[in-house]
Amino acid sequence: MMNRRTTLALFALLALGTLGACARKSSDSKPGEPQATSISVKGSDTMVILGQRWAEAYMKQSAGSTIQIAGGGSGTGIAALINGSTDVCQASRPLKEKEKAEVKAKRNADAIETRVALDALAVYVNAASALKELSLPQLAKIYTGETTNWKDVGGPDHAIVLYGRENNSGTYSYFKEHVLGNKDFAAATQTLAGTSAVANAVKGDAFGIGYGGIAYLEGVHAIAIKKDDASVAIMPSLATAQDGSYPLSRFLLFVTAGQPTGLAKSFQDWVLSPAGQSMIESVGYYPLPKG
């Protein structure tokens, strides 16, 4: 009945068309070329807003260049860097050895990490909570599920509700490594996409606890952190992050495959210049210590 050859021909045409479209697209954009007037920056959700402010200011002063900022998590950004689908990766944690090796293997260049800003990872509780401080060991017990009631850490007799980040987040990895000593999060930890979602959840939950960048503090309050039960409690601030006394401060990074070139280089240089560094505090993070 139906002419089989016609169907086949139509199929072939469609397939060819699709292939053609794909091929053209991929040869159009070669990331990292010296003349590139457009680069993509992808990675840490913690750094999205910071990156966007930088990009806006930079694009305003050098017309014609486009910088696209995307989030997704440090892990997502690093994966994109390995696959070559982003020029610059924003990361809130250093790369693992395994990831560095993969960048080297797939991109044929070393992964270069450049410190661009300083962040203090804050631990926050609901604005109505009277809790003022916790020590790192207490925090570890809370997040591994050993301590489940606020009364064990000096609060009211009520279950602790844990909020955290998805496991593709640099903040997740950082917290797991530096607070939990690489132990697993308690199964009851609710994982949310993005620091603002965590802050929002804690804002709506009188018995919640969350962690994330210092920039997201609306409706919640940060608590002071003690390195161990004997040491002094320290609030996250510019001074305590820069002198390293706050136990949970970390560097925010740009990661590139090989030394950055072209627009990526000039953007990064600008970010490290006084003009770029002076913008950081308005977003809620801290500039790099001088010298």
Binding site: G72, G75, T76, L162, E166, A193
Partner: peptide, 28 residues
């Protein structure tokens, strides 16, 4: 809430198959 708990309490946070795929596939 995406916490992978095993219980039948409807008042507890829960993590579904689809949410897991969506949130983790981007990073692996």
């Amino acid at each position: 809430g995406n916490a992978a708990l095993v219980d039948l309490n409807l008042g507890h946070s829960t993590r579904t198959v689809t949410a897991t795929i969506a949130q983790e596939l981007g990073e692996v």
